[in-house]
Simulated scan of single mutants.
Amino acid sequence: MNILAIPTTVGLSKPQSGGQNRFCNLVKCQAANNRIVVLEPDHLHDESDDDVARVYIYHDIEALQKRLSIFRDINPDFIRKAARIIRDEEIDLIQITHPSGAMAARMLGLLTRRRIKIVYDAHNVESEFIQQTFANHDHYSPMERKLIPAYTNLLERISCRYLFDHITAVSDNDADTFRRKYHLKDGMISVIPSGCNIRSRISDEAKNKIREGMGLCPADIAVFFHGLYTHPPNREGFDLIQTDIAPRFADTNPNVSFIVGGTRVPKFEEANIRSLGFIADIQNISGADIAIVPLRSGGGTRLKIFDYMSAGLPIVTTKKGIEGIDAENYEHAIIVDDIDEDFIAGIRYLIEHKDERKRIGENARALAEAKYDWRIIGGKLEDVYRTLVPESSIHYNNSA
């Protein structure tokens, strides 16, 4: 099968966000049995992308020194490049991560008389996600905060109702939201959760070196959180650690340090909090003892949860933080309603019970291995695609 994969605000390789991680790994999975072509914005292209798939690039529309990524349906360069790919690569299916571009893709399919299936690989419910992220973001003007969510909502509604052949959601909750908002017909949507690459266990010596790099002593207990700093739900989590969570342990547990980091996270050290800034090697999370996910909002599935599960870390999280993952409370994680006294009590429980840290962490890793390995997720997506594009209609392009 010849598949055209189109990301929006992420590139193909060197993932720096959950959405990019999902896109990159799904492309790698599908490349095992299909021919994959990727069309991505030029400013997100990296030389290593070409090692993963055949890559074409296009220029985003720009105005007032801003990239207008979501206006791909009227972007001449995007339309020209997509038309070339559909024609030359004999595309059978288009996998797109955002409603923008779906209208152009559908029109190109009709003009070329190709029965191309368009699948919306939804990392979240975009109309709700954009409302949350734009609502209180000072980077955008008041007009942008009104216009962009309204346009995205309209675009998603039209695309889901009339343009997409199928939608893949990352959780049952997102799937239910799509069905409710857009009155989707039966069989229109499938749940394809996100996943992780199961990391090899590291030796005690390697773990101790990581901890030394974090400035930790052998007796210290490290509580870890990471994420994209500019993403509002993550930013709220970072702020809550600084202002509410970490201070609760400063006097009662002097051997507990809160370690944070991630993309665009500033480096700093204060009281019992240490920020590592950008974390080049996510394997460094293996130096922690406990992971926390203090999130109250956001859509989709938090891929940081999978990082922690794969590393065998016990997790304290809100229900929102672990949404879309089949984890049981006190078996695979400690799961609470909100960032409140129960959240603090969950952290204290793991601090005080080393055996429970090990048990819950091992259970989490076992769950990731059994249900959320990217190879398993990729197989589920492959099954969906094979249903949409029967063998008799598949084109076989053997060009290099």
Rank of each mutant, 00 (worst) to 15 (best):
H43L: 11
I96M: 10
E212N: 10
E156H: 05
F71H: 05
S257K: 14
A271K: 15
D121T: 05
N234T: 08
Y56R: 07
H231W: 15
P142S: 01
I377S: 03
W374Q: 09
R67W: 02
G300C: 02
P294D: 05
D355Q: 12
D289Q: 04
P41S: 13
R179N: 14
I116S: 13
R84D: 14
H395Q: 11
A135D: 11
I61D: 11
Y58M: 05
Q131G: 10
Y385D: 06
I347N: 11
F343C: 04
T263V: 06
I315T: 07
I245K: 03
I376Y: 11
I6M: 08
L163R: 01
I339R: 03
S203R: 09
L93P: 06
P247I: 00
R35H: 04
G187T: 12
P7H: 10
H226G: 03
K319P: 01
V55Q: 12
I57R: 14
D239S: 13
L381E: 08
I158N: 02
I245L: 06
A364F: 00
D251F: 03
P254G: 05
R180D: 14
E391N: 06
P218G: 06
K28M: 04
I334E: 03
S159P: 12
I3D: 11
A219K: 07
H166T: 12
L12R: 00
I241V: 11
T301I: 15
G324R: 01
Q95C: 04
N2S: 07
G11T: 06
H166A: 11
S159C: 15
A366V: 02
A32Q: 13
L93Q: 13
D342A: 14
F278M: 07
M188G: 05
C196N: 03
T177K: 11
A135P: 00
L154N: 00
H332C: 04
Y385E: 06
G237T: 02
